[in-house]
């Protein structure tokens, strides 16, 4: 009896999730009248704007990941090692981007870093790129920080550090050669989520007027019928790949990395 309810709950739930996926896939294949075809995908892939925006977003994602790793790993490490009483506060701060809407944050950027301010980031092309990377890093902060902090929990930071120091290693060596390799898996799972977030992000890129993938999809959606569905399938594929890889990687973490 209980199991019947359980199955019912699960199946109804799954139906809700599967129908839109079927719907978009079905729609993306119906560009040619009366038969299924990949015409919509061909159109999308032939569009030079697709290539430009897609590669722009990939670049932004990679830069965001690199910046995020440089920002988060040393901080999380340092807090665990020297300032453990700060952890609850840092954790609170890193969760703020989940609560403050992205549109509010980017509005703040536009007002704070406009051409007449002390740091006129929005004044130049490169400046806005930098601002966008920082914005993306802010949005992915909750995920990145959590992933790295969880990774650090599994290694004994204090002992590793003392061992390295006793061998004469400096801070850069310790973080770069000892801590980072030990949290690679955690960093990678944070990186995949970041990648997925950046590839689909719309609000910040649109309001900073950057040629990113998100605004491109929105623009296409406003003007075309079948291509958006094809784009949705592609975007879903990207998300699936990122999260799938993340799962794969974090499963690797559970098996010991080195024989001890």
């Amino acid at each position: 009896m209980k199991r019947l309810w359980a199955w019912a709950a699960l199946i109804i739930g799954l139906l809700y999730f599967i129908l839109p996926l079927v719907g978009m896939t079905n729609f993306s294949l119906k560009m040619r009248r009366g038969e299924y075809s990949f015409d919509a995908y061909a159109k999308v892939f032939a569009d030079s704007r697709f290539h430009e925006t897609f590669s722009y977003s990939v670049w932004m994602a990679l830069l965001t990941i690199i910046f995020g790793v440089f920002l988060v790993v040393p901080t999380a490490y340092w807090v665990r090692l020297k300032l453990p009483f700060l952890r609850p506060y840092i954790e609170f701060i890193t969760l703020l981007p989940l609560v403050i809407p992205a549109i509010v944050i980017v509005f703040g950027y536009i007002r704070l870093y406009n051409t007449s301010s002390w740091l006129p980031l929005t004044g130049s092309y490169v400046g806005t790129d930098i601002l966008l990377v920082f914005g993306y890093a802010t949005l992915s902060l909750p995920y990145m920080y959590r992933a790295v902090d969880t990774g650090l929990r599994t290694i004994d930071v204090t002992t590793l550090t003392e061992a390295a120091q006793s061998l004469g290693a400096g801070w850069v060596t310790i973080i770069g050669r000892i801590i980072l390799p030990n949290v690679t898996v955690a960093v990678m799972s944070g990186a995949f989520v970041t990648f997925a977030i950046v590839m689909g992000e719309f609000t910040m890129a649109a309001l900073l007027n950057k040629p990113a993938f998100g605004p491109y999809m929105q623009l296409l959606g406003a003007n075309r019928a079948y291509e958006p569905a094809a784009l949705a399938v592609i975007a879903f594929g990207i998300t699936w790949a990122c999260l799938g890889l993340m799962q794969l990687v974090s499963r690797l973490q559970k098996t010991p990395q080195r024989p001890v």
Partner: peptide
């Protein structure tokens, strides 16, 4: 975000 909206437009 955007692709989700497309998926639901194509469905509902």
């Amino acid at each position: 975000g955007v692709p989700l909206a497309f998926a639901f437009l194509a469905t509902l």
